[in-house]
Design a protein around this nucleic acid. Sequence first.
DNA 1: CGACAATAGGCAGATATCTGCCTATTGTCA
DNA 2: TGACAATAGGCAGATATCTGCCTATTGTCG
Lengths: 121, 121
Amino acid sequence: MRRKPGQLLPLEVEILEVGLALQRQGLTHFHGYSLAKLLRERGGRRSLTAHGTLYRALHRLVSAGLMEASWEDHGIAERENRPRRRLYRLLGAAEPAVARARAAERARPKLGSLQPDLESP
Amino acid sequence: MRRKPGQLLPLEVEILEVGLALQRQGLTHFHGYSLAKLLRERGGRRSLTAHGTLYRALHRLVSAGLMEASWEDHGIAERENRPRRRLYRLLGAAEPAVARARAAERARPKLGSLQPDLESP
DNA sequence: CGACAATAGGCAGATATCTGCCTATTGTCA
DNA sequence: TGACAATAGGCAGATATCTGCCTATTGTCG
């Protein structure tokens, strides 16, 4: 769907949130497949069976300048005997972007994120 | 199943036959996935949905000294934007081994490869 | 010959990433 | 506000290779 520049979609926010959480644990780099597993554990809600959607969202975040992508070293994949990973790293712009997205969501809540309205009894 | 040394199993013979056919076309190297497609076209009979059986057979043929395996150059896979292939090449011992297997099969035909018995009317 | 050991074959799925196609959602403009 | 354009999400499947588990088949030995 069309969207105004700078705005983040739910999946993108989720990716960045997981990324920030990993960063807090000292893990600066992650890859798509691991992210898929984390997201599955996290919410359970998102199927992501065929991870096409996720990889496209990752590419978008790179294009948006919020993440940086690089290919894993050949040798590592080789030693561990598995396909090569594409490693993603959050850029500085990511954290404020998430904060803005969260603020925007609080201001304009979508159906599904309805919270008990304590202000208007 | 157990087998006496030097004997080839049907799948192994098929692999080597396809390999020899490719060789005659000037294609000395092939990889597992392409082989799976060729075998599927060829007989149709073998499912090979999850190619585990095929890859194991390839490893056996390498251990048996009938084929040689090598990893494709990183750069090629990278340029073509796909996983790296393991390339197989028939060794000199392959052709006589197939010939022997075929001769053995003619001598001791299994159920399923029954040919019209023209010798004993 | 019949029981046993060993291994082959098949099924399922892990590991990674990516594309095509169709539908759903959203912003914009008339 | 309602129609349209654009793009996001989901499903399916391609590209490659490999492991685990269970069953089927085979050679050997008592």
